[in-house]
């Protein structure tokens, strides 16, 4: 098995499979100020490419994926912008059109495999259901395919597992089952929202290896949402760092990790202890917390916590400096201006 194969970056000329443009999600709860969870996010995903959305809790990474999938509750949320998938704007599709897409063309893997599986239905039934719904197969036809899928994601003794309920499987096996469900209709785009956060490191390594292999074998595009820069470094072709609902830096994985430009990216990289670094050095944390953020419309949200802050940072919103491949949003980037 090829654990270490670098996923080939698809040529830039290919048309994007998913093109998200200026996505905005605003939460409005009763008697409260509106909260911009996602504040103008744009990115492209090309076939066969793995794109990472990285950030800490509250940065809007998960909301972005839910908005694209049309899974945000209607009440209290406004979604603006567009997400063009294969020529159609997903955000303007009707709920029933979206349901046809979900599971068939676009599939999603969630963080907590136990709560994303129905506890009273067998694993086999849950996998076959997707195929019956989208491919019009009968249950008889779908069952052997489901077993194949479970085998494909590395679940031992797949035929017997079809009759198991989610609680009878371990966390890692449940996540595999969930991936099998997501793959049931050979989707062209897979969105994985923190798929390994609830798992132990040795199990995480198994799941990441599986995802890598799937992307290479099937050519599925993958959007990887995570807080773990280590996971991104091993998996993603392109990395987007989110802060306060905006993308603050984007780059290819080698470029971004070798020469991060945005102070937040630098701060994140500096603040995690690395297993391979020499010991004894003090960590360099980012001061403060997200509670200290400024509003984006008249400042850089990160300015209060930023060690690179200059005067203009608290007066104006930094513009995107770059293109849709690399770039950052900062007045005073690390390593000087472009």
């Amino acid at each position: 098995m090829t654990q270490h194969q670098t996923i080939r970056s698809s040529p830039r000329s290919t048309e994007p499979l998913l093109s998200v443009r200026d996505l905005r999600v605003t939460f409005q709860r009763r008697d409260e100020r509106a909260f911009k969870a996602v504040d103008g996010v744009s990115f492209d995903v090309r076939p066969g490419q793995t794109v990472g959305l990285v950030g800490e809790s509250g940065c809007g990474k998960s909301v972005t994926s839910l908005a694209i999938m049309g899974l945000l509750p209607k009440r209290g949320n406004t979604v603006e912008g567009e997400a063009v998938f294969d020529g159609d704007d997903l955000l303007s599709l009707s709920p029933s059109q979206m349901r046809d897409r979900r599971g068939a063309d676009i599939a999603m893997i969630f963080q907590d495999p136990l709560s994303s599986l129905n506890p009273v239905i067998t694993i086999g039934r849950q996998v076959t259901e997707v195929m019956e719904r989208h491919q019009g197969l009968s249950r008889k036809e779908a069952t052997p395919k489901a077993a194949e899928l479970l085998d494909r994601v590395g679940i031992p003794d797949p035929k017997a597992r079809l009759a198991n309920y989610p609680h009878q499987l371990s966390g890692g096996m449940r996540q595999r089952a969930l991936i099998a469900m997501a793959l049931a209709c050979s989707p062209r785009l897979l969105i994985a929202d923190e798929p390994t956060t609830a798992l132990d490191v040795t199990i995480q390594a198994q799941i990441l290896a599986l995802l890598k292999e799937l992307v290479v074998d099937t050519g599925t595009a993958l959007v990887m949402i995570t807080h773990d820069l280590g996971v991104v470094a091993g998996l993603c072709d392109e990395v987007n760092v989110l802060y306060g609902g905006k993308i603050v830096e984007r780059g290819g994985r080698h470029g971004l990790f070798r020469q991060p430009r945005h102070p937040y990216t630098v701060g994140l990289l500096d603040s995690i202890p690395r297993l391979d670094a020499p010991r004894g050095e003090k960590l360099n944390p980012v001061p403060g917390s997200v509670a200290d953020n400024l509003p984006w419309d008249s400042a850089c949200a990160f300015a209060p916590r930023c060690s690179h802050r200059v005067d203009v940072c608290t007066r104006e919103m930094p513009r995107w400096d770059g293109d849709d491949v690399v770039g950052f949003r900062c007045f005073n980037p690390v390593g000087g201006p472009r």
Binding site: P287, G288, S289, A291, P304, V310, D311
Partner: peptide, 23 residues
């Protein structure tokens, strides 16, 4: 940082007052 007094001074003060642990 090069400090420019008067302009946005109040906001600056608040930000600078941020303790290491956050406000």
């Amino acid at each position: 940082d090069v400090r420019r007094p008067s302009y946005g001074q109040r906001r600056r003060d608040r930000i600078d007052a941020l303790a290491q642990a956050g406000a």
